[in-house]
Structure formats: C-alpha cells, structure tokens
Write a protein that binds this DNA or RNA. Structure first.
Lengths: 231, 231
DNA sequence: CAGTCGTCAAGAGCAGTGCTCTCGTTTCCA
DNA sequence: TGGAAACGAGAGCACTGCTCTTGACGACTG
C-alpha cells in the first residue's frame, strides 16, 4: 500500500482494488453465491481468465472481501466506542451493539459472509481470524475497563462457572484482562447474544414477530449489559 | 402420505421421498450450494430433466428440505422437553438448549440451511414459517408454565421494556400466554442467545477461543435461564 | 374391450459458471 | 539491449439449473 515503485505495480494494485470494489458491489446486490468472476471481468471489460492473474481462485477473492469486511465492521465498532465517554461503560456497550446492528443492516450480504453460514467448500484461511477479532477486542476492553474501575454490579444469582472452564477462561482473558471468571463468561454470553439477535433479525427469524426492531434490540442489549454487570 | 390410491401415486410418493433423502445426504456432505439436481438424478439412475416432474425447481426441493429440517429440530426439542419433569422448568430449558445444539452439531449443513444466512436468490415461502415455530412454541410453553406456577424468580435489575414494545409483546405472547412483558422480552433475549451461541460455535467464531464447548455452552445457558428467572 | 388422455423418462440444447492452457504482447530489470 | 516475468485474450473442459420435444406406458371412460 506504500508508494508503488514501478508503473506495473501501480496499475496492478489499482486493478486489484477495482476488482474487489466491483466484487463487493455484486456481493451486496446478489449475495455470496451470486459473486461471479466472469461477471466482475465483464464489468471491467476484461476476459474472465485475466482475473486469475490477480486472484488465484474465487475463494481467494472471497477471502479478500471477508478480511475487508471484518476490518470495516471492526472499525465501525471502534469508532462507536471511541465516541462515548470512557467511563460510561453501559453507554459504550450499547454504542457497540448499535454499531454492529447498523453495519449489518446496511450490508446484509456482507454481514452474512462474515457471521452467517460459511460458504460451502470455502475454508477460511488463518489470515481472516486476525481481522475477525477487532470488534471483540473493543468489547473486551469495555468489560475490562468497567471491571478495573470497579464499575460492575455485584454478580447476582447466575451460577459460577465450573472449574473445568478455567483454561478456556485463560484464552478469553487475553482479550479481557483482569476480569474474574464469572464475569468473563457472562460477557461471552452477552457477546453471542448480540450477534444472535442480529442474525435472527437479518435472517428473517423475527418476521411476523417483532416490528419495533430497533427498540426491542436496544432493550434486549440493555438487559444483556445489565446481565454482565454494566451500569 | 395416507394409503396411496393408484399404483402411480404410490410410486410417485416413493420416488419423491427418495429424492429428498438423497438430497438431504448431499446437503449434509457438501452444504446447500453443493446440492445439485443433476447429482441427485445421477445417484437415482435417472436423467436430470426427470427431476422436474417431482420438484418444479431446485428451490422447491430446498423448501422441502427446509420444512423437513424445521420439523426435525422441532421434534427433537419437543422430545427433550417431554423427557423432563414438567415442573422442572430450568431442567426443561437446559434440555431444550442441548437438544438444539446436539441437533445442530450432528447436521451442521442442515442447521445452516435453517438458521444460517439465507441461500442467495432463494426466498422462503410462507409454508416454511409454520414449521419454523415448533421449537419456539416449546420454549414459550416452558416460560409460560413457570410463570403460571409462580416459579420465576423476581425480576432483578434489568430494565422494564419501554411502552412502545407493548404491541410487539402482544405478538410474542401468542406463544407465551400469561407472561408479563418484562419476562417476555428477557425470554426473547435468552432465545436469541441460544441460537447465537450455536451459530458462533458452528460457524467457527469460537475457534481458538473455547475448547470445552459443551460445558461452556451449558454454563452460558444456565446463566440465560437464570436471567429469564428460571430456577 | 378399445380409445383417449395424462403422466412419465429420456435426450438435446441453452446460457451460465469456475478454472486451465496456450499464445502473442508488453513491461521491467539486469 | 536481451531475456525473463507479467499480462490480456481466446479457446476449451466439465459442470450447473432449466426448457422443450419426443415417444412410451399406465390408468380411467365410453
């Protein structure tokens, strides 16, 4: 992404970008399986085989779109978090929730590519997981900040995690340092609850059930925030 | 499905069933997009065009599989619920959770067809929604039973739903009669949390994060049960 | 029993897909 | 300036969903 040296490299970078842009538009309008290398090539006035100079296969193009998508939603989440007062932990959590939902509603197909069922035959390379945790890191920091500030309501009735989960807690705590195990697992529950809601809303499970989606969502996320102990 | 009248109708019903069986196997092994009418026909020793006598299009075959899937998971949930003592509401909730998760883990592609991103270009007909609510009805009955039995812990700190959501509550209450609004929306949150977890686990979001999946799942679902007020 | 009508499997064919290979051409670098 | 690498174009392979036509078989009706 730095200043290109040769002219060839410059045009190559530009064409690569144009390919992903067109692909993203096609993805947005027709979904993942509607993404066609030939159609992208057609729109670029090129021949389909020329695409393979830039992406070895359709899956590699998909991977590029997935990484871009994770970075985009991660950035949206980071900005939403940064716009809130740092000590308003509940407000930060709600802002993050709305950022995820708004982003998803604006690009349902792209969201589905990230958090929906995996594209058949497609195996996500390890490159994607690095970008995938950006939003999770933000969430972890909120809980961690609240915990460090002593701004978490005392754990109520929910049961403590069994000891076996201690090592799993260790893996999660890399994102959420200084958080006791019980809070940590409730945070995981809230996190999955957020994406579970967005999935349900986006994939049609709320059809004929909920009409005031945004209000119901905010109410539900408030509840999950309180469940974690945020206030 | 009753006793067939003519021989023609009988063989037709049998062939239709054979098609869906083979299609389900292909679906299980290769996912939704890997489902090919031609491959099904090949396995049956028929010609692809003959398939269209039984299913007008590939989407109609998909619809049949989706309806079967909803019924299958609904039946699994119903059985898991029925196997628990009727007044053990928390136990019934946990049994339902594990039924959903176990069913999903056993047939990830079929689950993805039901609760994952919708197949591009495929628009679910209204027939599917009727079958889609079977498991939800079971869950609603559990909460409803607990509420009627006075076996719900008093609502704690989570906020009450804003008045605007009253009409949405009305729609949901058809499944969950006699349940106050605040409990009802917490139940919806728990419900989405269940499927959110299963989605995350199945679609790879828990890779490199959680290892003791079943225990973490049970712990999380216990927490959500307590969140609703079940004990 | 004979005739007709609907149902069926088969086959050819269309438009589209991902992907591979080859063939000249252009660009870059030593 | 020459050789190597990168490039776009084109043909072609195997595959997909789907349509249309053809001929045969089966089941009801006169």
């Amino acid at each position: 992404m730095t200043a290109s040296r040769t002219a060839r490299e410059r045009v190559r970078a530009e064409l690569t970008r144009e390919i992903t842009d067109i692909a993203r538009r096609q993805l947005a309008s027709q979904g993942a399986s509607g993404l066609s290398l030939r159609a992208v090539a057609r729109e670029m006035g090129m021949v389909s085989s020329a695409m393979y100079r830039y992406f070895p296969s359709r899956d590699d193009l998909l991977t590029a779109l997935i990484i871009d998508g994770y970075n985009a939603i991660g950035e949206a989440v980071e900005q939403a978090d940064a716009a809130q007062p740092r000590d308003d932990h509940l407000g930060r959590w709600l802002a993050v929730c709305h950022a995820v939902r708004d982003w998803a509603l604006a690009r349902p197909h792209e969201y589905a590519l990230l958090y929906g069922s995996p594209v058949p035959g497609y195996q996500a390379p390890q490159d994607t997981v690095a970008a995938a945790v950006r939003d999770t890191v933000v969430f972890g920091r909120i809980v961690s900040d609240a915990c460090l500030a002593g701004a978490l309501s005392a754990p109520g009735s929910p049961p403590a995690p069994p000891g076996m989960l201690a090592e799993d807690a260790g893996a999660v705590r890399e994102i959420m340092p200084e958080v006791p195990d019980d809070v940590l697992f409730r945070a995981v529950t809230a996190w999955t609850g957020l994406y579970g809601w967005v999935n349900f809303e986006l994939f049609g499970q709320f059809n004929n059930v909920l009409t005031h989606r945004r209000e119901a969502f905010e109410h539900s996320m408030r509840g999950l925030g309180a469940y974690v102990g945020l206030y």
